[in-house]
């Protein structure tokens, strides 16, 4: 990030839009708890664009990156040291919730932050190089079954992460012992896509959002399957679902934001209202579609209830795969 440009934009904004809504937090910041280029980055960028577009946020939303453990490092930083930063929202995904369910976020649980909003949903996807020898998910699974070490499976996150979970569920559906899979972990989907282009892994268990963003950006990759109920609309309509290829697995990925536990009710409400207003705006669908995301509008209590129920569901799933849960 070029800080000078940011600073220039900020000062210009201050002059152009003097602070009207006095509840708007100063120095708004969106933390993407990963390297740039992954799902968290997309989530923050969506908030950046849409909040500004809808006029809910006057000041520009700064996007910063705090990689580490699919959000674990950022979660610990917020709950530990940055508890009351009203201007800071942090991106989360279903992957964060799965890790929380396994206690991988350290001592903290889903009750330790304030869940602001869900702004959309993504789906798990299987990504390979454009000219990969694996032409379908079925072929890929057959190759893994023949020799588990011959296919290097890349994923954002380690054993137990949602990417691993997608691979493990598919492997189990294919009759493969998921423990024999050759598995390489990355900080996020963005890193995995980079390694995939370099040929260092053979397949990434990524998300539709970040993968399609990379493909749209010219990366020579292709989707083998999407873990959705039905085929997705638009250009994604060509990609078959996993269920079509014989692996009845769905993996929607909720994306959203939380704030620190000591953020005041007023500020929390301000963010929730801002997102609610933004998601109702007519341009929002367009912004979602640009990022290959799908609508899942929820805020505040609804989001909190969703998060709690998801964590409970993930705990059951993790136990089913022999992963430790706390």
């Amino acid at each position: 990030m070029n800080k000078r440009i940011q600073a220039t934009i900020a000062s210009v904004a201050m002059f152009t839009f003097p602070a009207i809504g006095k509840a708007e937090p100063s120095k708004p910041e969106c933390i993407a708890p990963a390297q740039p280029g992954g799902g968290f980055d997309i989530t923050c960028k969506l908030a950046q664009a849409s909040l500004q577009n809808s006029g809910a946020l006057k000041a520009p939303l700064r996007v910063s990156y705090m990689p580490g453990g699919i959000g674990a490092v950022a979660y610990n930083a917020i709950v530990g040291q940055r508890r009351a930063e009203a201007g800071t929202i942090i991106a989360f995904s279903a992957g964060s919730l799965l890790n929380i369910a396994q206690g991988k976020f350290g001592a903290y649980t889903e009750k330790d932050v304030r869940w602001v909003a869900n702004i959309g949903t993504d789906y798990g996807a299987v990504v390979v190089q454009q000219d990969s020898v694996h032409k379908s998910l079925t072929e890929l699974m057959a190759a893994i079954k023949a020799d588990p070490t011959s296919v290097i499976i890349g994923a954002g996150g380690t054993i137990g992460s949602q990417d691993w979970m997608k691979a493990a569920m598919t492997a189990r559906a294919a009759g493969i012992d998921y423990k024999t899979m050759r598995f390489v972990a990355f900080e996020g989907g963005g890193d995995c896509a980079t390694a995939l282009q370099g040929g260092h892994v053979h397949v990434c268990m990524n998300d539709v959002g970040d993968s399609q963003a990379a493909i749209d950006g010219g990366a020579p990759l292709k989707l083998l399957a999407i873990f959705s109920e039905q085929r997705l609309p638009g250009k994604l309509a060509e990609v078959p679902t996993a269920a079509e290829q014989g692996f009845d697995i769905k993996w929607p990925i909720a994306r959203g934001f939380y704030v620190g536990p000591d953020v005041s009710d007023a500020d929390y409400k301000w963010w929730a209202d801002a997102f609610a207003m933004t998601m109702k705006s007519p341009d929002y669908a367009q912004l979602l579609q640009e990022r290959n995301l799908f609508t899942l509008p929820m805020t505040a209590e609804e989001t909190t209830a969703f998060v709690h129920s998801q964590v409970a569901a993930y705990k059951t799933l993790a136990a089913d795969f022999g992963l430790t849960t706390k």
Binding site: K104, G157, A185, E187
Partner: peptide, 13 residues
């Protein structure tokens, strides 16, 4: 890896 288990990157096995 980090010893708090948050970060695991690479050949985690």
């Amino acid at each position: 890896t980090t010893d708090d288990g948050f970060v695991q990157i690479g050949d985690v096995l």
